Amino acid sequence: MAETTRTGPTVAEVTAELDGLADPKTREVNARHGDDHAVNLGKLRALAKRLKTRPDLARELWETDDSAAKLLAILICRPKAFGRDELDAMLRQARTPKVHDWLVSNVVKKSPHAEELRVAWTADPDPVVASAGWTLTAERVAKKPAGLDLTGLLDTIEARMKDAPDRLQWAMNHCLAQIGIAHAGHRARAIDIGERLEVLKDYPTSPGCTSPFAPTWITEMVRRRDDGTKA
């Protein structure tokens, strides 16, 4: 039997390289946001660019307990190669904010299973899982709203967002803002809900950035869009 020649780096070689890129100061900064990886994201993206798409290596990296390895796995995987149940399991394993956000944005949104998972996750009792469902819903509100019950979404947001855990609250607020920005017929109600619930009203915002407080966010994005149209 002919000997099989291995091509490309092994998971051990890649994780060793990640360990070499780890920086205690980066870990300290990330810890303030609930993350635990110690590799600068620019260096992580550079490594991913060098590795290119490697689905098998990505799966192996994902199975490690290291967040940097999981982030790298997301960057070098083939999103459409994952099954529905596989993505569901991966989301439940993605317990740090950055891994969770990158998985949803870079993998799940590109998957043919995105809509099925959106529906299932939005109704999930785990608020972290549910937040992924609301993130996908906000995406649909903005890009593919046909078939969505926007009034029903606003009803749910009005009833649940105020007391929702932080990550779920953030995702629901994003959805609220997208409804107000993208759908003029629901804009007044979206702004009214935001004003009454006052979610993220006092969130610290850097100069030049738009506040995540939904009434401010909606008003500013609509203004920019209208100014661009008139220009």
Rank of each mutant, 00 (worst) to 15 (best):
P24Y: 01
P24G: 00
P24W: 03
P24F: 02
K25C: 03
K25G: 00
K25E: 15
T26A: 05
T26S: 00
T26I: 14
T26G: 00
T26C: 04
T26E: 11
R27K: 14
R27V: 01
R27G: 15
R27E: 12
E28N: 03
E28L: 07
E28M: 07
V29L: 14
V29T: 11
V29W: 11
V29N: 09
V29Q: 12
N30V: 05
N30H: 13
N30F: 10
R32Y: 05
R32W: 08
H33M: 10
H33V: 02
H33L: 10
H33K: 10
G34D: 03
G34T: 05
G34L: 02
G34R: 00
G34I: 04
D35I: 05
D35L: 05
D35C: 09
D36R: 10
D36T: 09
H37W: 08
H37E: 07
H37M: 03
A38Q: 00
A38E: 02
V39L: 09
V39H: 10
V39K: 08
N40G: 13
N40E: 14
N40K: 12
L41R: 14
L41Y: 11
L41N: 11
L41K: 12
G42D: 13
G42K: 11
G42T: 12
G42C: 08
G42L: 08
L44P: 00
R45F: 11
R45N: 11
R45V: 09
A46T: 13
L47A: 01
A48P: 06
K49G: 05
K49N: 08
K49L: 11
K49P: 02
R50W: 11
R50K: 15
R50T: 13
R50H: 13
L51N: 06
L51G: 05
L51R: 06
L51P: 07
K52Y: 04
K52N: 10
K52M: 07
K52F: 05
K52E: 14
T53Q: 13
T53R: 15
T53P: 08
R54F: 01
R54E: 15
R54Q: 15
R54L: 04
D56C: 01
D56Y: 06
D56A: 14
L57Q: 04
L57S: 02
L57R: 04
L57G: 04
L57M: 05
R59L: 10
R59S: 12
R59W: 06
R59H: 09
E60Y: 07
E60M: 11
E60F: 07
L61D: 02
L61P: 03
L61Y: 03
W62E: 01
W62D: 03
W62F: 07
E63T: 08
E63S: 14
E63I: 01
E63P: 03
T64E: 00
T64I: 00
T64S: 06
D65G: 15
D65Y: 02
D66R: 15
S67H: 09
